[in-house]
Amino acid sequence: DVAKAIINLAVYGKYQNRSYERLGLLVDTVGPRLSGSKNLEKAIQIMYQNLQQDGLENVHLEQVRIPHWERGEESAVMLEPRIHKMAILGLGSSIGTPPGGITAEVLVVASFDELQRRASEARGKIIVYNQPYTGYEKTVQYRVQGAVEAAKVGAVASLIQSVASFSIYSPHTGIQKYQDGVPKIPTACITVEDAEMMSRMASRGNKIVIHLEMGAKTYPDTDSFNTVAEITGSMYPEEVVLVSGHLDSWDVGQGALDDGGGAFISWEALSLVKDLGLRPKRTLRLVLWTAEEQGGIGASQYYELHKANISKYSLVMEADSGTFLPTGLQFTGSDKARAIMKEVMNLLQPLNVTKVFSNGEGTDINFWIQAGVPGASLRDDLYKYFFFHHSHGDTMTVMDPKQMNVAAAVWAVVAYVVADMDEMLPRS
């Protein structure tokens, strides 16, 4: 009755709400945990102690070099057609403006195609992207590529409608990328409301002028750590089921949703197994990644360090898409492995979370999945996720302890059973 015991302990028993309470203590104490920040360093130290005090095994830190970018002071004011102070968030890796800022006329476009069509109008202007939200994967391209595409046509800065499915005047930050050979221009996200307003103004023929100041700076890379803890396997200790989330966040809100929840249900999975006195046949390894938000930096270096043992990884798991009410598991692997995962998920019938979806993925586990290791990610109710993602609204207030309990139970049952089965998951 292992699955039932895990579910009972996590959802109804003594340790219900534990992952929520543990997370609240960390994020209320430390706050957001930007790559390269003192906050992230402090969070890693606290987690190292927490995992040791929890009685987990082989608790250690694995060194990683990570980027260090800081946004500094930033502001944007519309000067024409009326004075309007705008909420902005500079995008990760953006350069700052020159001292005194940039004052320029705006060109509003709804897409990269429109930018190309109107390239002759773009020189010397601030490009405002008012792209519609058509899902995260597609829309995020404007955040990541917006500055490069604007710079290619001679713009001096870019302001991008936040990648958010809902807005109450909230800017949402995130990483952006420059391209070799293309001038670097300052870039920030603005609110959905302001982007849409400027689009309306432009369509009426209004001239729009914005003054933008950004103090963003990139500093030399710095040392950080992936945080690792284990329950060592009883029969095949060299074989691994990896359970993970990332400990870093952006520098706004509390990083509770992204990805405090994922990191803490992953810790909870090991805690539940340990508290029930269980020891799977192969090792359950918890990894709390560093610098995921900068492009999976910690995970990339972990992969380089450990890929020689790739044949020993039965399953890699990451929770980085919220810990709201789970609907199932996303899974990538061979047909045989998928059939096995369906049987494993049947153990979660008491929670009515039995579905196995396609496309197990995560920035931090994709290295392994692409190399043929079966991968799983938590599938949950994403309705509210992009309301808060990368914004000041990413706080404990949006987290739900009962939903985290269910997520932790799902995570623990899957991790334990796959780690304890007689054989590793079959590969293609």
């Binding site: 009755d1 292992v2 699955a3 039932k4 029969m235 095949y236 074989e239 046949k281 192969r282 039965s314 045989k336 059939a339 096995i340 049987e343 494993v344 049947n346 153990l347 049952v413 334990y416 059973v417 304890d420 089965m421 007689d422 054989e423 590793m424 079959p426 590969r427």
Partner: peptide, 24 residues
């Protein structure tokens, strides 16, 4: 050993299914 040398399990899916059901 957890995985046979050729990487192919000799067990039937029915056996694996029964094993998993034991965790219920």
């Amino acid at each position: 050993k957890a995985v046979f040398k050729n990487g192919v399990s000799q067990r039937t899916f029915r056996e694996i299914k029964e094993e998993i059901a034991n965790y219920e």
